[in-house]
C-alpha cells in the first residue's frame, strides 16, 4: 500500500526517502532479530540477492563484484576494495554483511518504483496522496532556493581548486568540470563563474562562457557535480577534513555547513 501511495505521488525524492526507510527497516530487523540473523539465514538472503557468499572462520566471503555493487554509497576505508580485496574476494564481518543487505534492499525497492498503476487507482487514492503531495512540494521548493553563495562553506576540494585557478594554474578537464558544476549548483551565476576563470593562463572568454553555460544547463541538460569517490579517483579530493567523513558528495558538505552556520 505504501508503495502505491508513493508511486502515485511520483516524485524521485520521495522514492529515495521511501527506499531508505525500507532499507533501514531491513537493517534493524536483521540486526536485532537474533535467531533470524543466524548465519544460514543471512547466507540464503545473500543468495536471493544474487551474491552467493561463503563463511570462513566466522567471517563472510563475497565475490568482489557483488561487494562493489552495493558499497559505492558507503564511506570509509573499511568499504574500499583497495583495502579489502584478496584473490577476487573480500572478507566481511556479520555487521558489514547486514549493511550490504540493507543497501541491496534499498536498490531493489528503488528500482521497483514507481509501480505501474492505473490512473484510476491513483485517482481513488488522491484524497490521501494530495496532502502529501502538497507538503512535499514545499520541501522541494525550499531545497531549490539555495540562498546566497557562501564560498566559505565550500568543501576543501573545491577551495583547493579555487586557489589553483586564482594562482593562475590551468585545471585538468575533470577538475574544471567539478568546479564549474559545483559552483553552478550552489547558485552562482554564469558570469561570476566565468570571471573566476579569468585568471587561468589559457583563458578564452568565449570558450569558457560556452563551457560554463553548457554545464549550467542552459542547453537543456543539467549536470550534477561529481561525488567524492569520483573526485578521489581523479586526485581532486584533497585535504578532506572531519566533516568529509560524514558525507559522500561535495554538495552535501556545502549544505551541511550552511545549515550549521559557516562558523562551524
Amino acid at each position: 500500500m505504501a508503495r502505491a501511495f508513493v508511486s502515485c505521488i511520483n516524485e524521485t525524492l520521495l522514492f529515495q526517502r521511501y527506499a531508505n526507510a525500507e532499507a533501514q527497516d531491513a537493517y534493524n530487523n536483521l540486526r536485532h532479530a537474533d535467531e533470524r540473523s543466524q548465519d544460514g539465514f543471512l547466507l540464503s538472503l545473500l543468495d536471493d540477492f544474487g551474491m552467493p557468499a561463503s563463511i570462513k572462520k566466522n567471517a563472510f566471503e563475497l565475490y568482489f563484484s557483488d561487494f562493489i555493487r552495493y558499497t559505492g554509497r558507503l564511506r570509509g576505508p573499511q568499504w574500499r576494495l583497495v583495502n579489502l580485496l584478496y584473490r577476487g574476494r573480500v572478507t566481511l564481518a556479520k555487521g558489514e554483511i547486514i549493511q550490504i543487505l540493507a543497501e541491496a534492499v534499498r536498490l531493489k525497492v528503488l528500482s521497483g518504483l514507481p509501480l505501474k498503476l492505473s490512473a484510476r487507482m491513483c485517482e481513488e487514492l488522491s484524497p490521501y496522496t494530495s496532502p502529501l503531495k502538497h507538503a512535499l512540494s514545499q520541501v522541494l521548493l525550499r531545497q531549490e532556493d539555495s540562498g546566497p553563495v557562501v564560498l566559505e562553506a565550500c568543501p576543501p576540494c573545491i577551495k583547493a581548486l579555487l586557489m589553483q585557478v586564482k594562482a593562475g594554474k590551468n585545471l585538468s578537464h575533470p577538475a574544471r568540470f567539478a568546479l564549474t558544476s559545483f559552483l553552478a549548483n550552489i547558485g552562482m551565476k554564469a558570469d561570476e563563474i566565468v570571471l573566476i576563470y579569468q585568471m587561468s593562463p589559457d583563458f578564452d572568454y568565449e570558450l569558457t562562457r560556452y563551457q560554463v553555460e553548457h554545464i549550467k544547463g542552459s542547453s537543456g541538460k543539467d549536470y550534477t557535480p561529481p561525488g567524492c569517490s569520483t573526485m578521489e579517483t581523479y586526485g581532486n579530493c584533497v585535504e578532506s577534513d572531519d566533516l568529509c567523513r560524514r558525507i559522500s558528495h561535495p554538495l552535501s558538505y556545502y549544505r551541511l555547513r550552511i545549515k550549521r552556520g559557516t562558523g562551524a
Binding site: 565475490y63 563484484s65 557483488d66 562493489i68 555493487r69 558499497t71 559505492g72 576505508p77 574500499r80 576494495l81 583497495v82 583495502n83 580485496l85 569517490s229 569520483t230 578521489e232 579517483t233 586526485g235
Partner: peptide
C-alpha cells in the same frame, strides 16, 4: 558477473589498480 557493473563500480576497480584510497 562484471557485465552489469555501473560506471561507479568500475571506478572502484580502477581505484584498486591505482592504489587510490589506500590508507
Amino acid at each position: 558477473r562484471l557485465l552489469t557493473l555501473g560506471s561507479h563500480e568500475r571506478r572502484e576497480v580502477v581505484n584498486y589498480l591505482t592504489g587510490t584510497g589506500l590508507e
